[in-house]
């Protein structure tokens, strides 16, 4: 009988440094984030779509007219993340939430910062919290989270 063989295992990392061109509409959204504000766009029926899209998702018509929205908004629905994975935006528990910003007709998926899931409720008011000006680079992480507004 052959002697037992130690089996080798090694850790590999496969990584591709993709860049993508964002186009005029997502580009405006990201430019807005870099300036510390959230930008939506008007759809065919006047609805304000956030994040902005190049075409109205309901009618397919071209969208036009950027609109500033927020920074306040309302939680439409949410999911609590008790055990964040390594690539999560937070290392401590947080909520993913669909936030409908003031002035918007659609919701944006983002992080809600809360100490426990008992603090998060559908319909709760939240406010966008941005990185400091020098740290913003024109990406979704410039909007680091939404924080619950004081209700007392």
């Amino acid at each position: 009988m052959a002697e037992p063989t130690e089996v080798y295992t090694s850790t590999h990392v496969l990584e591709y440094p993709y860049s993508r061109s964002v186009g005029p509409v997502i580009g405006a959204f990201l430019t807005g984030l870099r300036e510390g504000k959230i930008v939506g766009i008007r759809g065919e029926n006047g609805r304000v779509i956030v994040p902005p899209t190049e075409y109205d998702p309901e009618t397919g018509a071209e969208t036009s007219g950027f609109v500033d929205v927020g920074p306040g908004g309302v939680i439409e629905t949410w999911a609590w993340v008790e055990h964040p994975r390594d690539d999560a935006p937070r290392s401590t528990p947080f909520a993913w939430a669909l936030v409908r910003l003031d002035g918007a007709d659609t919701a944006l998926l983002h992080v809600v910062d809360a100490a426990s899931k008992d603090e998060v409720t559908t319909g709760a008011r939240v406010t966008a919290h941005f990185l400091d000006e020098g740290e913003r680079q024109g990406r979704i992480q410039d909007l680091c989270c939404f924080q619950l507004e004081e209700t007392s």
């Binding site: 496969l14 990584e15 860049s19 993508r20 964002v22």
Partner: peptide
């Protein structure tokens, strides 16, 4: 903003 870095890993 015209470009976005989106590495996959």
């Amino acid at each position: 903003v015209t470009m976005l870095s989106t590495p996959i890993r």
